[in-house]
Each structure stands twice: as structure tokens, then as C-alpha cells.
């Protein structure tokens, strides 16, 4: 067993666990987007960023891939973490303004404005569909194409795939291609309908 501190609590975790797994085991909530149990961690959305203090040095790191280590201290809700998390949600909302998942995350983590230029691209490139297709469906029909701001999820050469079985697992796991959030009217606006709700945990508008 590995001993570590999560948000002031001394806990024990099994060797090989990630910080995210340990935190969830003890009921500490860390938001995630590109993480799903059963798929390999990808550490791309950076929403699960936590502050890790190791040997006197503090740094932000993605908890979904950080292996638990003896003696480290994890802070899941420090000022640094909150600021980073809010900016990341804001950035994601600028690229997918009407995603219900993102709008709910914004409400939950206190994002009350989007200061960035919105550009609806309908995809946050979390790679869940790519990993789902490859790792669980054993198809590998889709992947990433191009780099930088031109990156996209695509079938090779944009041609109809010969290995896709049209199983729909990619749609199932996609966090943004769902019914849009009914709240905001214009890209760049926030719904925040659930911001005042007492039951933030329940994501009321998702029901």
C-alpha cells in the first residue's frame, strides 16, 4: 500500500492506482472529460488537473495518469487548481459553446463568463471515441488527423471506412454530441441555469 494525503486526509492506495482512482475511491470528486473507466488514460483535456506536492515542490498535473506515490500530497481544490480548471472549461466552451456537458461543468465549477472568442467546432478532441473504437470495439476505424489547431477526428483519408461496423460506440461515449444545452442562445453565452440550484451535484438540466 502507498500512503498519501488527499485534501488533508491521509489515505492508503494500492500500488499502481492513479491519483484519480485513489481520490474517487475515497469519494473526492475530480471532474474529468477525456477519462473513462475501461479506456487507457489519455491526459488531454487536463480537466482532472490537481496540485501535487512532492519533495517540497508543487506542480499541477493530470490526476488521471499520475501514479500514486508514497508521501505525496494532493490538493484537488486549491486556488491554483480552481483557476486552471475554470480557464480550461472556458476554453472548451469557446470551442463547443452549446455542449450540455460543458455548460453543466461551467455551472458546477463557477464559470460565469466566457472571455474567449467562441468558435463552434462541435468536438473537443478528447479522443474518447478513438480509444473506444480501438480498445473496446477492437476496430480502430477512426483516429486523429492533422496537428495543432487543425486537428480532427477522422476516418483515414476521409473515405468510408472498411473496418467501421457502425456500432455507434463512438456516439455513445462522446461528451459533446448530445442534445445541446437548452440554455444559451448565442455561442459564447453561458446557461448557468443550474448555478443557483441547491442540487448542483445532480446536474438538474441533464434530467
Amino acid at each position: 500500500m502507498v500512503r498519501l494525503v488527499i485534501d488533508g486526509q491521509s489515505v492508503e492506495a494500492e500500488e499502481g492506482w492513479t491519483v484519480l482512482e485513489a481520490a474517487r475511491h475515497y469519494g473526492v470528486e475530480i471532474p474529468t472529460l477525456c477519462y473513462a473507466e475501461g479506456l487507457s488514460p489519455y491526459s488531454a483535456c487536463r480537466l482532472c488537473t490537481v496540485e501535487i506536492i512532492s519533495r517540497g515542490r508543487s506542480r499541477l498535473s493530470a490526476s488521471c495518469s499520475y501514479p500514486v506515490q508514497e508521501g505525496i500530497e494532493v490538493r484537488t481544490n486549491s486556488q491554483k487548481v480552481r483557476r486552471a480548471r475554470k480557464v480550461i472549461i472556458e476554453l472548451l466552451l469557446a470551442s463547443c459553446p452549446n455542449s450540455r456537458t460543458l455548460q453543466c461543468l461551467a455551472s458546477k465549477y463557477g464559470v460565469t463568463r466566457i472571455r474567449f472568442r467562441p468558435e463552434d467546432r462541435g468536438c473537443i478532441l478528447c479522443g474518447l471515441c478513438v480509444r473506444m473504437c480501438k480498445e473496446q470495439m477492437q476496430a480502430g476505424a477512426i483516429g486523429f488527423a492533422n496537428r495543432g489547431t487543425g486537428r480532427e477526428v477522422a476516418v483515414p483519408f476521409h473515405a468510408k471506412s472498411e473496418v467501421c461496423r457502425e456500432c455507434g460506440a463512438c456516439l455513445y461515449i462522446c461528451p459533446v454530441c448530445e442534445l445541446p444545452c437548452p440554455g444559451p442562445l448565442q455561442p459564447g453565452q453561458l446557461c448557468n441555469a443550474c448555478l443557483d440550484s441547491l442540487q448542483l451535484e445532480a446536474f438538474p438540466c441533464k434530467e
Binding site: 480557464v87 480550461i88 473537443i124 495543432g148
Partner: peptide
């Protein structure tokens, strides 16, 4: 860097663009 980022993680891809 916008053109040279691999585009994998959000802060680098979206942050640089903004």
C-alpha cells in the same frame, strides 16, 4: 506554435489559439 502544437491537450491547442 499554434501550427506546431500536436493538438492533443486542451491548454496548448485551445489556449494558444485564444
Amino acid at each position: 506554435l499554434c501550427g506546431e502544437s500536436c493538438g492533443k491537450c486542451v491548454p496548448c491547442r485551445e489556449g494558444l489559439k485564444q
